[in-house]
């Protein structure tokens, strides 16, 4: 009796110990990032102002604002979305609504996994070889955006497919039994009920696209441009590359400037992600069946 309760007490202690250990690991994973974010805010916060966001860089990028980079990122992301969202949603529709469970589908899935796993610099090489040279787009927003679109395609496909899968099969069968074609069923029942989930994935893709640097370095983003892009065949500055440039390539930059740029970039990305997460939680609370 006594021996057993001793054992229980010991087990309890060991369990508490392990619990603490794992908690510590989790905290240690998060704390450095908290410190880093704090440093970014404390060092870069003073730079941020309306002027900083909406004026051009001056004095060889050692002063002034980031407007062309901010606008360029919006351009690149917008064009990338125009290409990848329709394609990704259609691909997900194929995989979830049409494809059977066979080797061919597995091959597509493997390709998607690899598309997400190929290093971003390899995507950049592909962008140079295919869009800049072969298709003759030159270094342009179009080439950069298409490179990013292919790179982030898996995000759209995977998140869309998940939200399509969440629509119960019984709804489809009810529609088919009424004589609806597959497409009518998708358009009237499946997509309307998956659209918010798809949107969540798209926001996530925006965040990812905005932060990427390597794929746009040689395909369309420029270190410095004295003018704003007028169309998709122009080059542009971009936030991510601008951070790299002011942090490493330009001499005589005041210490807090790159912190300010980093802060704006990370804020953009985290805000997008937070919206996506909040949206997802809101949807989870809203039951339609």
């Amino acid at each position: 009796m006594f021996a057993e309760s001793d054992l229980n007490a010991r087990n309890k202690r060991v369990q508490g110990l392990f619990r603490m250990l794992f908690l510590m690991m989790t905290v240690l994973l998060i704390v450095p990032v908290a410190i880093i974010l704090f440093t970014l805010v404390s060092k870069g916060g003073s730079v941020i102002s309306i002027d900083f966001l909406f004026t051009n860089p001056t004095d060889g990028m050692t002063a002034g604002g980031i407007f062309p980079a901010l606008l360029g990122t919006v351009w690149i992301v917008a064009v990338a979305l125009l290409a990848s969202v329709p394609l990704g949603v259609a691909a997900a529709i194929y995989l979830n609504e049409y494809a059977g469970d066979n080797w061919f589908t597995r091959l597509i899935q493997l390709a998607i996994i690899n598309l997400a796993g190929v290093p971003s610099i390899v995507h950049a090489l592909f962008g140079v070889g295919a869009f800049v040279i072969f298709f003759g787009f030159g270094t342009s927003i179009l080439a950069a955006s298409l490179t990013l679109a292919i790179m982030t395609l898996p995000i759209v496909i995977v998140s869309t497919r998940e939200s399509l899968r969440a629509v119960p099969q019984a709804f489809r069968e009810a529609c088919w039994n009424m004589g609806a074609t597959r497409w009518q069923t998708i358009r009237r029942i499946v997509l309307p009920n998956a659209i918010s989930g798809i949107l969540t994935g798209v926001i996530l893709e925006v965040s990812r696209t905005a932060g990427e640097t390597a794929p746009i370095m040689f395909t369309g983003a420029a270190f410095f441009l004295p003018f704003l892009p007028q169309g998709v065949f122009d080059q542009t500055m971009a936030m991510s590359l601008h951070l790299f440039v002011v942090a490493t390539q330009v001499p005589g930059v005041p210490e807090e400037l790159p912190f300010g740029v980093a802060l704006v970039l990370i804020a953009m990305v985290l805000i997008m992600n937070s919206i996506s997460i909040a949206f997802r939680m809101y949807l989870r609370g809203k039951k339609k069946w």
Binding site: A170, F171, E173, A174, C175, M178, I189, K288
Partner: peptide, 11 residues
Amino acid sequence: GVVFPLPVGLP
């Protein structure tokens, strides 16, 4: 017209 064992009200 088809009616199933388990009712299906579409969303």
